[in-house]
Design a binder for these strands. Sequence first.
DNA 1: TAAAAGAACTTTTTT
DNA 2: AGTTCTTTTA
Length: 775
Amino acid sequence: MDYLKGLNEAQYEAVTTLEGPLMVLAGAGSGKTRVLTMRIAHLITNLVDPFNILALTFTNKAAKEMKERIAKVVGQSEARSLWMGTFHSVFARILRSEAHYLGFPSNFTIYDSQDSLNVLRKVLKDLSIDADLYKPKKVQARISSYKNNLITVKAYFNNPELIENDERANMKHMGAIYQKYVDACYRNGAMDFDDLLLRTNELLTRFPEVLAKYQDRFRYILVDEYQDTNHSQYLIVKALASKFENICVVGDDAQSIYSFRGANIFNILNFKKDYPDAVTVSLEQNYRSTQNIVNAANVVISKNVQQFKKNVFSDNEEGEKIKVYRSLSDADEANFVASNIWEQHNSLQRRFSDFAILYRTNSQTRAFEDALRRKNIPYKVYGGLSFYQRKEVKDLIAYLRLLVNENDAEALTRIINYPARGIGETTQNKLTVFADKKSVAITEVLGNLGHYAPELGLNNGILTKLSDFWAMIKAFQVMLKSENAYTVAMEVAKRSGLIKFLKDDQTPEGISRVENVQELMNSMQGYIEEQQQLEDGDPSLSGFLENIALSADTQNDKNETGDQVSLMTIHLSKGLEFPVVHLVGLEENLFPSFMSSSTREEIEEERRLFYVALTRAEKQAYFSYAVSRFQWGKITDAEPSRFLSEVDSQYLEFINPAVESRFVNHSGLKSNIFDEHPSEPRSFTRKSEKKTIERSEPQPVPQNLKPVATARIINPSGASSENIEVGDQVRHDRFGVGEVMFLDGTDPQNIKAKVKFQHEGEKNLILKFAKLTKI
DNA sequence: TAAAAGAACTTTTTT
DNA sequence: AGTTCTTTTA
């Protein structure tokens, strides 16, 4: 049992206490993943059949990594039959095999938030409810919270308090909307993310034999990131564990950051109440970070009221102080970060992959991408608008979804007239109304046009178009029986006219859309090949569709090994670690977000978010903030985040360069701790410098001097692209530096260039639009 | 009916 | 600023 060596006392206890309820409170960096991995390995070595183990993780990525690590200890074949994955993916799988209990088809579609929002918009329209009063997003959030708290439509109408509550919020139609939305999903044979949990609960409560089956199967249950489970998840775990009570939950209340998604921190805080016999183990030694980082993080989190008492400490070196950089603008901040990474890469020989840039909102990525690209620093953006959410990708996926589940009305509306085939809004409305009146599915009408035609009141031209469309879908479905998913998808892309339609658009955007569809095809092929190698793989089309619905960005996972800087939101960084972390955008109203600054609970969650971010760092942490920032299309002034002043200044070092101090008083900031720690004394010379700059700005530019601004504009209208030749080194606004591989076309208005970019690969660009600059 | 132009809204975080 | 929904025009 080599794997037990090298564990500290607490870790050893957590790994070897196999029976009964166990709560592991794992402070940041305390070797949580290691404990979980070893614990599962230990179970298997102690002759527990892996088939009887269920391990629930927070992300698919975490599950995959953990499975690989376990396989190294106990061997590939033993690890395979382990059930490990996110709540959503594990229970989606169970729901598929038990779907008949709930009256769902086993090939039900999984709606992502965008899909469910579309359905909701339609429901609002059908009920003639003003979408201004009932903002779809708000309605969606409300329904989501019902579902996560196990309030079904029936339960809602039986609960006067809830109804009253919605009436007070001026949303008295919520019940009706909720009902109609649930009905629509049911009719479409679809479940949204929350349904995967809610319906699992329904399955386990309504059908004791199903519950018994899975209770017997999952004798040992482990839940990672327990602090971020919601009520619905909590109940599933509780039900499954109630027979054997071999339940191990691992988490850290200080790292609960998903309450906006219904996560309930009391699940972990009250674990002892649910299982009075539970053993609690605290892992407090942080092996990841320097003392300075751990101490700074502790000071901040101690401001929170609601938490377990913990004493996280580090025996590592004391380490450097956290550097704090005040910048003028978002662009300035990004430049600072990029230069810092560049310098450390050169002088300290750090790898690019040693760095992470963490931010609160996805919209902050752009500035950093620009700055990194200018310095030719390779990087990878995690999360953000996922590849699978792009319109052209979703469109092709909608076709595929319809093949698998033809009741999916949402997929049907998306593509029935895309690309345009003369089935316009009027026709679609007629169809919907007619189908409603006859209470049959639209697809039923489409499938039996001959039968329904006399009553439909559509002319022959339209009827032909409809029957052609449906014949095409049917042909794809037949093909799916004999051909593999990739071949069918290729055929769909061609025969539906989608590819041709996209190819007709020769703008750079249009070209990139075609590339995205190509990329989707590639990722599909990759998926099929991967699944074919697995014994229990599922290379089918529906398997692929489920995979992309439940895991954010599989397509990028291939080139993960490269040496590149990681950019991601703090939420996404949970569970990861980096030698150097740049925590950026530390400003009031950004972090903490303006959306969650009103109540103490909200601020406490933001503070935990700060704690998570800081404890990602192993050796060095950098904080930065901007005095003004470009957002919502204009420049906004910003104040430093309150979290900065909550870090005791003994852990900080302020590093503002000299050039900047002339602007120090420029922003009209309220006095704060940062004015007490100027990086260098402000002199009169500097102040007067500032004055001259300010005064000179409004003055007219002297005739004999070339204004600097004009001199910098190399490419005002794209005209300079004209004398570009094959072999030239060029710079593109978005793609960075690259080499022109070849040029095509004689019409000066329509010359295409193939450019090989250093980081973005080869792109086909149209010179007129690409605004390439020769360098 | 489809493309083009204009208006409105957007930004919190994700399975 | 960028996207998406809405209205106008051919």
